Simulated assay, not measured.
Amino acid sequence: MFHLAQANIARFKAPLTDPQMKEFVDFLEPVNRFAEESKGFVWRLKDEQGRPASYLESPFKDDMMAINISVWEDVESFKNFVYGSVHSYFLRNKKKWFDLKGTSLFVMWWMPEGQMPTLDMAKEKLEALEANGPSPAAFTFRGFYDAEGRLIETLTG
């Protein structure tokens, strides 16, 4: 059995302590809690204090990089959270908090049930997608591969 892992990174417009980031920061915990309570949620990366991964040291050599990694039972559960919940507000309004001209990457991959991704693994998957395009090892909603490695045309919202 496999679970769907996802990682995304984007560059913040300002430090999390900046007033410009207040709305984003105020909703980090509620949105993450909602994710954890969502059908199909398995795991998300947190720091030692249980705060969102955005507070972890970035493996991308840039303190302004936001990092999010999570694991879901299946793509439908993840897609419902991303596009069919409060999370969609933050996706639609990302230009308020993120530098859209800079690095912004999203990747998914299948992992054996019970295995959890690491920051280094997420970085490798993002780099593989950037270098090679979608493949069974690293893909997106637009070039989606099922757990058996078969290409599914597109799963965009």
Rank of each mutant, 00 (worst) to 15 (best):
R33I: 13
M116N: 11
R44E: 12
F12I: 04
T103W: 02
A7L: 06
A137T: 12
N8C: 05
A5W: 03
Y145H: 10
S104T: 09
A35P: 00
N8P: 00
S77L: 04
K123Q: 15
Q20V: 10
E153S: 13
S85K: 02
R51H: 13
A137L: 12
G133F: 08
K96Q: 14
S58R: 07
A122C: 08
D74S: 00
S88N: 13
Y145K: 07
Y83G: 08
P30E: 11
F139T: 06
T103L: 08
Y145G: 04
L105D: 15
Q49E: 15
F90N: 05
P59G: 11
L28Q: 14
D47F: 01
P30V: 06
V82G: 01
G84A: 07
P117C: 06
G114H: 07
D18S: 11
E153C: 05
E73V: 01
D63A: 13
F34L: 15
F81V: 01
F41Q: 06
E124N: 13
A122L: 04
N68A: 05
F12K: 12
D146A: 06
L151E: 12
A14L: 02
P15T: 03
Y83L: 06
G133C: 14
P30S: 10
S58K: 09
E57I: 03
K61Q: 13
